[in-house]
Simulated assay, not measured.
Amino acid sequence: MLRAIYPSACMGCGELTAADFALCGGCWRDTPFLGGALCGLCARPLPGEAEPGLVCDDCHAQPPPWGAGRAVLRYRDGARRLVLALKHGDRTDLARPMGGWMARAAADLVRPGMLVVPVPLHRGRLWRRRYNQSALLAARLARELRIDRCPDALWRRRPTPSLSGDAGARHAALAGAIAPHPRRGARMRGRPVLLVDDVLTSGATLAACARAARAAGAEEICVIALARAAPDA
């Protein structure tokens, strides 16, 4: 009876589908999932064939402050529309399937005692948006992987502007903005940490989070993003 009243619909366009939390054929073709050769640090698509240990030129020149990075989607076309629907469109239902995608992408990063930590929102932005999309994704990812999480191990001490412009401007805008939470940041001490964000662009936000986690005593830091904003390989 419930299926008759609430039939399964495409996550992207609302067209009827055979299962819940699925994409119709058209939206699936329009949603670019990452695959093939990827940088093992920032998930940037690379030319050539997939193999372990690939690192892009940017990460060779300036390694990020984490040990491994994964992402699920290219931030364009249908993938961009889905990410924005979660982030700004109150489509919190999308966190369930997206968190599952991220859990599969991050499965090889899991270590004993690992703590899942989302990128924090400033309290003002959280009040306006009513939810932190990265925290929703982290909750589902942690549930799928059966590992511990702390949604507020990090906190954003001051608001930052929308992060546009070059990588240098992004890093400058975030300098000192993210820190371990005064009380719950200690949960990262001596543990591997998996940082979760919705979109990885320059890596400035995740880098600020990684430095804060390191300051709190995290042993090993990895990152996972739902989408990677990067030019085609």
Rank of each mutant, 00 (worst) to 15 (best):
A204D: 10
H88E: 15
R158L: 09
P112L: 03
R228S: 10
H122Q: 11
A68D: 03
G12L: 06
T17M: 10
V116S: 01
A204P: 09
V223L: 04
E51S: 14
P45R: 05
I178T: 10
E49K: 14
G99C: 12
R146V: 13
A186T: 14
A204W: 07
G25S: 13
A230Y: 06
K87A: 06
L82V: 04
T31H: 09
L34Y: 07
V72H: 05
G53W: 10
C13Y: 01
R157I: 06
A135T: 03
G53S: 12
P32C: 07
L141P: 08
A22K: 00
G53H: 12
D58A: 14
P112Q: 04
C13N: 01
G12M: 01
E15S: 13
S134V: 00
V55Y: 03
H60P: 00
D166A: 14
L46K: 07
A19S: 14
T205I: 10
P112A: 05
W28P: 00
D166C: 13
A61H: 13
P47D: 03
A213H: 09
D198I: 08
L54T: 08
A135W: 01
A79H: 04
V116M: 03
A204S: 13
M114Q: 12
A85D: 14
P65R: 06
I221K: 05
P63S: 00
R184Y: 08
Q62A: 15
A233P: 15
V72F: 03
A186E: 12
G203C: 12
A139T: 12
A142E: 05
P47T: 07
I178D: 05
V117G: 02
R74A: 15
H181L: 03
M102F: 01
P7Y: 11
R76I: 01
L137H: 07
R191P: 02
A233E: 13
D198N: 09
A169R: 15
L126E: 14
R187T: 11
P151Q: 00
W155G: 08
S8L: 00
R158W: 10
G53E: 12
I178E: 06
A68V: 06
R29N: 09
D166Y: 11
R44I: 10
R76H: 09
Q133N: 04
H60G: 00
A172T: 11
R149C: 12
A218N: 11
A138K: 02
A213Q: 09
T92E: 13
M188R: 11
G25L: 12
R91V: 11
